[in-house]
Amino acid sequence: MVSSIPVIRIRDTLLSAIQGDLSDRVAEAFQGDLLSRLERTGASGVLLDISALDIVDTYVARVLVETAQMARLMGAHTVLVGMRPEVAATLITMGQVLTGIDTALNVDDGLALLALPRR
């Protein structure tokens, strides 16, 4: 299945703005799509913009964290950007569900983070 969430390549970075009501199936399909694009393009960075998501539950959080981990195994650095305040508050209230993934306030800051020398 193809997730229908667009993944855009800008130089060495893949950018995806995740939209709308993300179902489990779409989230899983998106993970596969993104990793395939990573393999085909050889991109070194991934920016996941979640500013359009008003709900990130534990399942979606898990898919995001795993996607970043998988991308890292493939050699790319992932930054999650644009999390809404109410989403951040909900995730922290629930527990530590989005640890181990780099974050930035917006796409600009995310690009700046990707441009830093790799640790």
């Binding site: 008003d54 709900i55 990130v56 539950d57 809404r84 305040p85 109410e86 989403v87 508050a89 909900t90 209230t93 629930m94």
Partner: peptide, 10 residues
């Protein structure tokens, strides 16, 4: 408010 909406929806 947005926080309560996100909490109950989640």
């Amino acid at each position: 408010d947005a926080f309560a909406v996100a909490a109950i929806s989640t």
